[in-house]
């Protein structure tokens, strides 16, 4: 049966196969084109002076922006991940089915994840920057982005927890373990890969964010302090290209951003592997 199917392919099969090949090829081609373009435009503009520790209008150093990007990413994750993961644990492991609060939290999260980032930026500006009087600051930006990625972390964690088979829970309860032990020793470790893929998505959103940050962390090109204004690489790129004086450096910055994103993703994938094997 099998061999006959393989030798005598129907025309529809062939057409469908061709479509998938073409789609895959096209996707790869577009990606390569994009990356190639950025690299070709950017690499010749990379200068050692772009990595000097201080930004001046002559060297247009991206170094402070690199540090800001890393710090802002870590800060936002440190705030959002524990909160999002704990909320998801409550929703899937503790709350009773059909609980009103659960429904409310889910709908809120779903709604929040569809809101454009500029809205988060405006909220952050009105609340953290103005009402709390923090001014443009790294912490205002980090909190704003934490709120922005919270629904994403929550929903991916929830899905990861739900995909852990109930038989693990039964096995644990059956040995006399309580809910706390079952959740933290059995269910959560099994869900780590799923949670990490959510975190990687969140990192992507943070690193690529501009609108929400311009209104909360501002655009200062200085080395970041918690309470001072600072710009991430994406914002740096945006300002460079909108000022129009340093288009070449903007491309160079894009290359740096690309390398950084690849690096962070590799790190996340590596830690996922490490964590699941343990």
């Amino acid at each position: 049966m099998k061999s006959r199917q393989r030798t005598k392919r129907k025309p529809l099969d062939l057409a469908l196969a061709a479509v998938t090949y073409i789609a895959a090829g096209l996707t790869v081609a577009i990606l390569l084109l994009l990356i190639g373009y950025v690299v070709i435009q950017g690499v010749p503009n990379l200068k050692l002076s772009m990595f000097s520790p201080r930004y001046t209008s002559e060297n247009v150093s991206a170094f402070p922006a690199i540090v800001t990007t890393v710090e802002l990413t870590l800060l936002s994750l440190i705030i959002a991940v524990p909160l999002g993961v704990c909320t998801a644990i409550y929703l899937t492991e503790y709350a009773r089915r059909g609980n009103r609060v659960v429904g409310l939290i889910r709908i809120t999260a779903e709604t929040l994840s569809g809101i454009p980032s500029i809205v988060y930026g405006l909220f952050g500006m009105l609340f953290f920057v103005t009402a709390l009087g923090w001014g443009f600051s790294l912490i205002a930006g980090a909190l704003t982005l934490a709120i922005m990625i919270l629904p994403l972390i929550m929903r991916t964690t929830e899905e990861a927890l739900l995909s852990v088979p109930d038989s693990y829970r039964e096995g644990s309860f059956g040995l006399g373990a309580g809910r706390l032990r079952t959740v933290f020793r059995i269910v959560l470790p099994a869900a780590v890969p799923g949670i990490l893929s959510g975190v990687i998505l969140a990192i992507g959103r943070i690193v690529g964010e501009t609108a929400a940050l311009i209104y909360t962390a501002g655009t200062a090109a200085e080395m970041p302090t918690l309470t001072g204004s600072a710009r991430t690489l994406a914002v740096h790129m945006y300002t460079l290209s909108s000022e129009g004086l340093h288009t070449g450096e903007a491309y160079a910055t894009a290359v740096i951003l690309l390398v950084l994103v690849v690096g962070i993703n590799a790190l996340a994938a590596f830690s996922a592997k490490k964590l699941t094997r343990a």
Binding site: P165, S167, E170, G171, S172, I186, P189
Partner: peptide, 10 residues
Amino acid sequence: MVFQKPNPFP
């Protein structure tokens, strides 16, 4: 308790 489907922890 031992269950119908073997359920060793990962």
